[in-house]
Design a protein around this nucleic acid. Structure first.
Length: 250
DNA sequence: AATCTCCCCAACCGCCTATCC
DNA sequence: AGGATAGGCGGTTGGGGAGAT
């Protein structure tokens, strides 16, 4: 049988999005909100797969996105979170307002990995490279981690945790348990003692969307007039924005 | 100026999970 | 309970730009 493809492969456009397509997608979501991505292309008049629309929206068009390179503080937070969560980019991204998992993943692979290697730190285990080499002679990294006392200030690893720190699928879903700074030697080194407050309070919804939508118009390569909609003074449009905003406020 | 190489990042692919019926 | 479907996630790729030769 096999699974039905997420979209009709015939006639589905791939590759970079054009400004025109962006316009259509933004226009549609502003008017209808995010629902049923599978139906979005048809309803929005796009020859795209629903998945592609979702990705384009979440990774590029969302008005609450920050643009540009990660700041030093954001980068260090990513390193810390990666040490605790592994390659769970979406979880990491959820801790960095305005950043997407894709963006963080890309930044990790292109910048942070190299940076850590340069510092002599294994980007996978977050252990010093020479120490890591020694450690593999005697015991696995998992064993090493499991030797740590379960402590409320430490990362929580279950007894049957997987062998790689990048594969910590046994974390409690309650992530409030893991985010603590200072006990991990690497992050202590990177962060110092204090944990910077990165979460911009202004990012909190609601009310954010309408403010940031103006930002979208500046950030993107097109202006409000390009959307062909003058809905931003429109009460209904503002309501739709707020609806969207609450969708993001998980 | 032309060509080559490397790097970055947007986008795709395939798998997994959640939800619905 | 289990199959079908949609959404979400992480790994990977390829086009394009920047810098080197």
């Amino acid at each position: 049988m096999g699974r039905q493809p997420c979209c009709d492969k015939l006639g589905v456009k791939k590759g970079p999005w054009t400004a025109e397509e962006d316009k259509k997608l933004i226009n549609f979501i502003l008017n209808n909100g995010q629902c049923c991505w599978r139906a979005v292309p048809k309803l929005a008049g796009l020859c795209r797969c629903g998945k592609s629309c979702r990705l384009r929206w979440t990774n590029y068009l969302r008005p609450d996105l920050k643009r540009g390179l990660l700041t030093e503080a954001e980068e260090q937070l990513v390193i810390d979170l990666h040490a605790r969560l592994g390659n769970r980019w979406s979880k990491i991204a959820s801790r960095l307002p305005g950043r997407t998992d894709n963006e963080i993943k890309n930044h990790w692979n292109t910048h942070i990995k190299k940076k850590l290697l340069k510092m002599g730190i294994d980007p996978v285990t977050h252990e010093p490279l020479n120490k890591e080499a020694k450690a593999t002679e005697t015991t696995s990294h998992a064993d090493h981690l499991q030797l740590q006392e379960p402590n409320d200030n430490n990362i929580r690893i279950s007894e049957n945790s997987s062998s790689s720190p990048s594969d910590h699928h046994n974390f409690s879903s309650d992530e409030s348990n893991f985010l603590s700074i200072g006990d991990d030697p690497l992050t202590s080194c990177l962060w110092g003692v204090e944990t910077p407050q990165l979460v911009d309070p202004s990012w909190e919804f609601p009310g954010l969307w309408d403010e940031n939508f103006a930002g979208l118009l500046h950030c993107q390569d097109f202006g409000i007039q390009d959307f062909g909609i003058d809905c931003f003074d429109d009460v209904e449009a503002v309501n739709s924005l707020n609806t969207l905003g609450t969708d993001h406020n998980l």
